[in-house]
Design a protein around this nucleic acid. Sequence first.
DNA 1: CTAATACATGAGCACATGTTCACATAAAGA
DNA 2: TCTTTATGTGAACATGTGCTCATGTATTAG
Lengths: 125, 125
Amino acid sequence: MMSVNDNQICKTVLIHEDIVNKVRPLLTASEILSPLSEFFRILGDPTRLKILQALHVSEMCVCDLAFLMKMSQSAISHQLRVLRQANLVKYRKEGKIVYYSLHDNHIKSMMDFGLEHINEKQIIR
Amino acid sequence: MMSVNDNQICKTVLIHEDIVNKVRPLLTASEILSPLSEFFRILGDPTRLKILQALHVSEMCVCDLAFLMKMSQSAISHQLRVLRQANLVKYRKEGKIVYYSLHDNHIKSMMDFGLEHINEKQIIR
DNA sequence: CTAATACATGAGCACATGTTCACATAAAGA
DNA sequence: TCTTTATGTGAACATGTGCTCATGTATTAG
């Protein structure tokens, strides 16, 4: 009986057992790592990132966002739902109008941090 | 003749023209915002994030990574290519073995930053 | 040279994702 | 009440993504 990926994983006993054994206990538990990648995944869409950036300047209603971004109200609304479920934005209702704003200011710092990273290497395009 | 999304965007002249006009000039140019969301998108996958975290502890070869993550060498190799193209990792060849390492230490800081964000709100799940 | 091995890569496939479209809902005005 | 308008949402659809599988390439050993 062969182990799961016997024909995929390297044939040697294990190339650097010492390294693997050193690294393994230092890995963040996947219960934590998974929400983290989920968080980055949410930020990894241009539409959502732009919405977040706009909301960092000012609270805005769905209509304003749609106009600002030249996108359909429906598309914006769908994305706002994603952002809501990820707890990145909150909203307040005033009659028919729903005003969205950032849940906190971490996202802005995160964006600045990312921009720094990008600017420090051979710039993408 | 109607404008592009006349039946999608709100019917009012424009709900908060003042806000939109205030926000628009403060938005980061999409030439910059786009690479940023691209950067987050790369981090937004559990496999890639785990690879990066492992590489932060120690330089490792493809084989080690595959073993550590209980994934096929092919899958790891494909993801390493994505990370390479995004300039997040670099590699060095020694005979048959290819050692990968982080391109710089920004990623670790970014991960820590993200973890902070997650820990500060009602924890996911 | 031949075989073995570490890694890379293209094709294929199942599944996730973002948008549009149509329609539902809720609030305000006539 | 009936209409209008701001927003939410399910279904459909096209596209993107991550993995497997098969195979290619480079390097080393024999």
